[in-house]
Design a protein around this nucleic acid. Sequence first.
DNA 1: CCTTAATTATAACAACTGGTCTATATATTA
DNA 2: TAATATATAGACCAGTTGTTATAATTAAGG
Lengths: 188, 188
Amino acid sequence: MSTREKLIVTAATLFQRQGVRATGLAEILKVSGTPKGSLYYYFPKGKTELIAAAIDYAGTNIKNHVQAALASEVDPAKAIERLFSEIAAHISETGHLDNVSISLVALETTDEPSLQQACTRLFTELEAMYTAKLEASGIASEAAAALGQLIQAATEGSCTIVATKGQPEQLLVTARLLQQLIRAQLPA
Amino acid sequence: MSTREKLIVTAATLFQRQGVRATGLAEILKVSGTPKGSLYYYFPKGKTELIAAAIDYAGTNIKNHVQAALASEVDPAKAIERLFSEIAAHISETGHLDNVSISLVALETTDEPSLQQACTRLFTELEAMYTAKLEASGIASEAAAALGQLIQAATEGSCTIVATKGQPEQLLVTARLLQQLIRAQLPA
DNA sequence: CCTTAATTATAACAACTGGTCTATATATTA
DNA sequence: TAATATATAGACCAGTTGTTATAATTAAGG
């Protein structure tokens, strides 16, 4: 792994776990074992540029997880169940939201247009993935789009609540209701 | 309004809008027009103590809004519609999440037990409010509890996404699906 | 009015922050 | 091998942060 990659991966993890403002550059350097000179060499615009790269990296990671879960089952309801149980397992094991949610980063960066746009893009892409899966199973596209939005909202909201409460199993309760809703929309 | 109250109200607003870490005591003092000596006089344990008071204040505010919306309609589905449209209007007008969501504060404070507990308590109380409303309309208690959790998750998640995207109308799409789900659970 | 309590004022502090700069080390190329 | 390009090292910087301490001012009580 190159120095630049180490910086991005470490930053992505720390930002998602504790937030952008709570993560100083000194900590990223220490955890990644990389030199300070390199940080400004690879990210001459500074922390904001590193945050942008970290959002993209985290986003790709999350999308890959979601894509794998959606592809693992033909039935979208079962796929959502699988996704939520994977998220629950991750949070249960790590106690953190890295690799599953960028809500904290998104909320912290609404005042910086380029970062807000990067987070917006990710949220939109995730919704589109859910929507596509639902459409592929025969749900009308308007209903699929609405459901895609709800699934994404429920996912981010559940991650936030579960991380706060320390109760990952709550994700499974929410998943069951979403499955019910999806099944009600599937063609007979 | 007393000095102590001014500090709490200002802190609550700024914390919900921009986060705890992005809000320094200097800004709270400036915006509230209160003296620095008073801050430590009233909150001798410092910023954490002020954050705790701000969470409680914000939580009471949010609970009051939710309670008013739930009480405004007998039908829980219509009440949720009203709540979501009020949230959408607020975000539309202000561009901020103060008075509607503590997700940012909650995510930033998971490493401080007393604050985590305060946020957990609020999330739990909000869920209980939704659950009680659903039960009162005849939904079986287990189903009502699961739905209460989904409503709370969808609310927090939607606020996060909508604040990021700057698209408050998306809340109304989500509200319609929640209404559908609620109606499917109501006794015939 | 005097005494006591409450509140305010503000300087000082150590620690942290993101960024700059220049010299040096390492890698690449011809 | 020497020259050039890339990457690293690390000192330094100004600004911000939350906190402490002490003196002064104001408010309350007898």
